[in-house]
Structures are given as C-alpha cells and as structure tokens.
Nucleic acid binder design. Sequence first.
DNA 1: AAGTCGGGGTT
DNA 2: AACCCAGACTT
Length: 353
Amino acid sequence: MADGFSAALIGWHRREGRHDLPWQRDPTPYRVWVSEVMLQQTRVGTVLPYFVRFTDRFPDVRALAAADSDEVLHLWSGLGYYARARNLHRAARMIVERHGGRFPETFDEVATLPGIGRSTAGAILALSMGQRHPILDGNVKRVLCRYHAVTGWPGSAETGRRLWELAAAHTPEREVSAYTQAIMDLGATLCTRARPDCDRCPLREGCLAFRNGSQMQFPEPRPSRALPLRRCRYALIRRPGSGELLLQRRPPAGVWGGLCCLPELPDGVEPRAWCRERFGLEVSLLEPRPGPAHTFTHFRLQMQLQPMEVRGETDIVMEQEGLLWYKEGRRQAVGIPAPVRRIIRQLELESPP
DNA sequence: AAGTCGGGGTT
DNA sequence: AACCCAGACTT
C-alpha cells in the first residue's frame, strides 16, 4: 500500500513519539518479550514498575527459567491474567531446553511458545530484530478501524480477519521496528478511545473517520451482556498471637490459578466442622460480614467473610500441602490476587496483631 | 466462533 | 458503574 501511511507514522514518531520506555532502552528479544506479555490487556503506566522489578530480578532467559514458580507469580501479583506469568515461565524453560537459552528468531518458533500468539510474536521479532511482521493489538485495531472506517466489533472473527489484512498491507518493507513502535504509540497517545487528538495526527489526511467526523463511531464496542452474580464465603482464620492468616493455594487452572487465596468455604457446609475435617483446627465463629465485590470479565463476585478464632494447636496445618500462615510485611514470595490483598490489608488495619 | 482469564485506568 | 486495554488459550 504505497500511500505514505508508514512514512508519515515513522516521521511523526521520530519527532514526537516515546523513546525512553524501559523496554526501548536495550530492546533484546527477551526484554521485548517480557514487556509485550505484560502489556497484553494492560496499560503502559501499570506495567512500568512491574517490568523494572521483573527484569531486575530476572535479567535474562536463563535466570527466569531457573526461577521458582512462586517467585515468578509473586512478581506478577497484582498485574492480573496470571496465566501470562505461568506461560512466560514455561516458555523460558522451553527456550533453555530447545534453543540452548537463546531466544528463537523465526516466527513459527516464537509463535509456538506458550503465551505468544500472532500479534505478540510479530511484535517481538519486529521490535527487537526488525523482521517484517504485522501486529494487531488494541491500539492498532483502533487506528485501523478509524483510518478505514471498519465496521463491526474488532473482537469478532470476521472483523479480525479484515483488520489483519489491513495491518499486513500497511507494514513497510524497511524500518519495521520504527513503524511498529510508531503505530502502537499513535494509538496509545493520540488516537485514543475517548478524545482522539486529530489535530496532531500524522494520518489525518487519509483517515476516513476524520473526513466524515465519525471518529467516535470506531471501533464498535463489544456486544454487551449482563454479568451473572456469584457469591462465595472465605474463611478468615488468624493464628493467635502472631496474627498470621491461613492461605491456601488454588488449583493451577481456572480463576487465580496457582495463587494463594483465603480458604473458600463450600456452599452449605458448617464452618466449624469443615475446619476440623479440612485443616484439623478447632475454631469458634465470629460474626460473618460482607467482603468486597470483585468484577471479572464474565461475572461479578460478591465475597462473604467468615472470621474465626483458633482454639487449639495450629502447627498441624503446616504439614499440609498448599497451606501457609501468611503475615503481611514478611514478604513471603507467593502470588496473592488483588482483592484478597485488599482484605488482608484491611484486616491488619482494623486489628493489628 | 464463542467463552475464559484480572486488574486498574478512564470517563 | 460501564467500558476498555501493547491478547492468548480452550472448547
């Protein structure tokens, strides 16, 4: 598509784009990979401190591959989509085993790694090695939808196909790295969802939505549907004296997979009998109270909290797999979902151990 | 092709 | 409070 699209973008980015993000400093495949995975469904501002901590602790593939899975999840804790962290860790070990620790350099090898799809594979190879591959993340989708006035929700298969064609057609033969950085930056800084700054946009002249004054019509929103409400009860079991809180590791798959969470009381069970059978703990019950509500992509969770007081011996739970007495500030290297962290923090605030 | 997976910023 | 974001994976 010889229409000056990429040239205009590259020129704009050279003059006004961002060049000082941490992953732009030393754009090795490893660093670009980590940044791209963290940036999946997550904004730059949120990722910044996580990226610095993560690459400081794990400066290369081998360091990550050698790491303990709990520590990886710990450094990810709060970012969300924890399958990304598990996949990153798995992929690092695969790179060490299959590729001798050297990041693969062909699209198929990269796209085969867990957690790396078509767009992220293209971004890694384009940004770190200048290989010509299109990308299609949220920013690029928005820019292309407006520029070409593409109708339909970008998440649908049909619209997605159309957008991939356009993305490939616009990707230049040379300066692919600069172009890739530029189109993402444009979407993140000028061609934003709410108030696009068309006055400063290098693509203004050819943009169909701008010509029609219909910027806000694109991209079309996801079809909405009502979120089902689910309820769950969490046991608040504090250890007498130390104030430590009992946490339980969740199964590897599903919501909060592999993270440490408050023990979940199954529906209908009597808490005291459950604690005796499940943990071997004798407890007395305090007044239950509502916890926070948490909204996921596909349902809303209303949490109930059941505080308890331990009556007898507490060492018994230490012998069980997947259980730990957790204390804020002790810096135990485990991952804890954000809403659970909020509960813990609140608890220590209202009744310090 | 549709559903699952978090958390936080924006409006 | 609703919507969305540097998506990928499973079914």
